[in-house]
Design a protein around this nucleic acid. Structure first.
Lengths: 229, 229
DNA sequence: TCAAAAGTGTTCACCGTACACCCATGG
DNA sequence: CCATGGGTGTACGGTGAACACTTTTGA
């Protein structure tokens, strides 16, 4: 039995997280002000190095918890970025992840600690290294994924109005949708529960709140149902 | 200026290639008989370690050329596999790629050299490590990708009949298609050139050969065209 | 009573799907 | 002349897209 592969090059492995949130109007990203060299003081994705005893999924989760305090967040691997000099200090291969969180729920103290800040995706600052590429890829993947899987709800509070949901999809797809067609479509999927409760914050009349029915969704997919927006 | 990140763990980085081919009837994978420990003699995907001065894309290409002799092959990154003990020898994080090649064109000598062999995807042998997971993922990604991008042609010779194309899609999607609807659909995309030339190999009447028009396709996508099968 | 958002239905064009017969040729 | 695969058209139902008016209620 051999104990190592000889003469092969090793490298540092990092994970970087594109963290999405939604604030009623716009799709946002959580960025940190980098507090170490190189590029100290510049805006960056939250990241970290892979440790000996964890998978990259676990590393991404750890990084996410560190910045937001949130457990069990929707997290999906995007792609590997491995340009030889992408990090000027040392050869580092990075695995990019994107996460969807409820913007209301994260830990404000941690955000301060890391000098993090939310930016609208349409108004991002300049980012270090290849992080802009990662963001671009994350947005296009998010667009695709929300259209074939009901993951948009991860960005909303548990109870939400039809209008909030529509605004969310409009922000993700970056286009206006017709509200009649939208609610018809959503209702036909039969995945929401309409509550006997109204949100009075946005109009005189008030608008009904809905909940996503995770259980119903699971039952449907196990019967061969295909989500398609 | 600092010159390295201290105290971070390094790991070996590998690439593994799922190599697809098509032989008129079935979708196939090219596997090698592993010639070193551990798991020597078992069936495996072709892989290799990332070198200091190359990206993972380049590494995957290098691996592919080594086994097939083919340059400029369709190659797409799938996912990172990073279970801590996936390779019993040493911590190795692997980036899986899938490739589409023309089964007729690869270098038969190299295949022999690496004791490689083509297997129908429906009749694969047991594979080492997590390679079966990689294959499964590759197949589902191939299914998705062929339905939104005309990459199926990468698996066919330059000139092919409508029937070959249909058989290819049937093999990828694992379902029968109606030939009238299929050719109607393909023709409506307006991406093929019908040649004044017939393939006489499969019938008395002979069937017309087609070519994929890469140039037309590029022009169409730059005009906002969306391939959808 | 007015302003502001909520809620709701119909029509039409297009696309996917199902389905069956004639054609050309070599043996 | 016949067996084999090649090639083609039509009818129908369902889905996506366009489009406008009424309702509620707080100020």
């Amino acid at each position: 039995m051999i104990h190592h592969y000889k003469n092969e090059d090793k490298a540092l492995i990092a994970v970087d997280c594109i963290i999405f949130g939604f604030d009623q109007e716009a799709l946002k990203l959580l960025l940190i002000k980098r507090d170490f060299e190189p590029e100290k003081g510049k805006w960056s994705l939250m990241g970290g190095f892979l440790k000996k005893n964890e998978t990259v999924d676990q590393a991404a989760n750890r990084v996410l918890i560190t910045l937001t305090g949130l457990q069990d967040v929707y997290l999906e691997q995007l792609n590997v970025f491995s340009e030889v000099n992408r990090d000027p200090v040392e050869r580092t291969v990075s695995v990019a992840y994107y996460a969807l969180i409820n913007l209301q729920e994260h830990d404000k103290e941690l955000i301060k600690k890391y000098s993090a800040q939310w930016f609208e995706v349409s108004q991002l600052p300049k980012l270090i290294f290849d992080h802009e590429q990662m963001v671009e890829l994350a947005i296009s993947r998010l667009r695709y994924k929300t259209s074939v899987q009901p993951i948009g709800f991860e960005l909303l509070p548990e109870k939400f109005t039809m209008r909030q949901l529509q605004k969310l999809y409009e922000a993700i797809l970056n286009q206006k949708l017709d509200k009649r067609n939208f609610s018809k479509k959503i209702n036909s999927l039969d995945l929401l529960v309409k509550l006997n409760e109204k949100d009075m914050g946005s109009s005189r009349k008030g608008s009904f709140l809905y909940k996503f029915d995770q259980f119903k969704y699971q039952k449907k997919i196990s019967n061969g149902f295909n989500f398609k927006l």
